[in-house]
Amino acid sequence: MIEVQHAPSIPNPPSIPSNAPSIAHELAGKSDACSGCANQEIWTGSCAPPHSLRMNDIKRKILVLSGKGGVGKSTFTAQLGWAFAADEHKQTGIMDVDICGPSIPTILGLTREEIHSSASGWSPVYVQDNLCAMSVGFMLPSSHDAIMWRGPKKNGLIAQFLKDVDWGSLDYLVIDTPQAQSGIDGAVLITTPQEVALQDVRREIDFCRKVGIRIIGLVENMAGFVCPGCKNTSQIFKPSTGGAKRLAEEMNIELLGSVPLDPRIGKSADYGVSFMDEYPDSPATTAYLDIIDRISAILDQK
């Protein structure tokens, strides 16, 4: 069982340098991290290693997908990252490329942080010594700004996150994304019990199989409501067609587990703290940790 520990407080970073990336810049999604670097003239080549070399320093790359918004994909991503980082000997990164809804900075308590750049690339923002994150949200002038990107420009920014971010050596990189990417160890798909969500997940499963992405398993989120007082569980989203269990059997994939809806999950996300750390006795915490243990076991089998 993975043990969850309190994260140490992180001091405020220095002010952002003038050459740091911004989503509003005309070259965002097009340029690389060396653009504007003061050290550029003393180098005969690019400061940062190519995409392939950066990815070689990351042992496990995991996608968290849903195919539908509002099912708790980003919240699960954060809990997965916190749980991996509970082992102080493991280095974990979270990459948030959900351009339409970059919520990872809020969930991790990093809304006031900014990206810094150096000769080795963009530096991720650290939650604690062994947990860092990179998000489109760090590049927005404010949390109210929308990103109206499609096609090549959107794909260009994702490529920059892979190529230009100085992740260092990671044991796990958890990627919060609305769409499947290549070059990863597997995908965890998130759904809620009702059929309208399951339909989108079926399409996501089909897509993963067509492009050759390994599916680690399926997680059913918001599977019943847990009363914080009496601890009783009641259904909020009725599994009218059998829920995630039926879908997993139908699609021949593993159901990793079901996480009940605890209102304190939302509260923890708003305050940027680990729900599992704050509420270790919640049935949802038990479910999260069982699921994460199973994901770790599956990845170790590879």
Rank of each mutant, 00 (worst) to 15 (best):
A180Y: 00
V219N: 05
P228A: 07
I265M: 09
A85M: 03
K163R: 15
I2T: 13
I58D: 01
S9L: 14
G257Q: 07
P124S: 13
G151F: 09
D171S: 02
S52G: 08
A48L: 10
P49R: 08
Y279C: 08
A20W: 09
I42E: 13
K61F: 01
S234I: 01
G212T: 01
S123W: 09
K238S: 12
Q181W: 04
N56C: 13
S66W: 01
D281T: 14
G151R: 07
P21W: 13
L162A: 06
G45N: 10
V127F: 12
R203P: 04
I253V: 11
L27R: 12
T77W: 04
A244Y: 04
S52L: 15
T111P: 03
I42Y: 15
S143T: 15
G72K: 05
A28N: 08
S46Q: 10
G168L: 06
E3A: 11
I175Q: 00
A85I: 06
Q194R: 08
C227V: 02
A119F: 08
I175D: 00
V165H: 02
P105M: 03
E278F: 11
N252I: 08
Q194Y: 02
T111W: 03
E195H: 12
V4A: 06
T286K: 14
P124G: 12
G242N: 07
P102H: 07
T111M: 09
G70C: 01
A33P: 02
E250H: 14
E113L: 10
S117T: 15
R264M: 11
L110M: 12
E113Y: 09
A28F: 13
A24H: 05
T177R: 06
V273F: 11
G151P: 02
G183I: 01
E114C: 09
D300T: 11
I175M: 04
L189N: 01
Q301S: 15
A297E: 11
S31H: 10
E254C: 06
Y126H: 15
V219K: 04
P152T: 04
I99N: 04
G45D: 12
L170Q: 06
S296D: 14
M55D: 11
A223I: 12
Y172V: 02
D57T: 15
C100H: 14
S22T: 14
T285G: 04
G217M: 05
E195F: 10
A33N: 05
I295A: 06
W167S: 05
H51S: 11
E3W: 06
P263Y: 10
R60W: 13
L170P: 01
V97K: 05
Q128K: 15
F207L: 05
A85R: 04
Q128G: 10
T111S: 11
R150L: 05
E249F: 02
H6L: 13
N12M: 12
L173F: 03
Y172L: 07
G224A: 10
A20K: 11
G36F: 08
N232A: 14
T192Q: 11
E26V: 11
G224Y: 07
S135G: 06
P11F: 06
G168H: 10
S118C: 12
D206R: 02
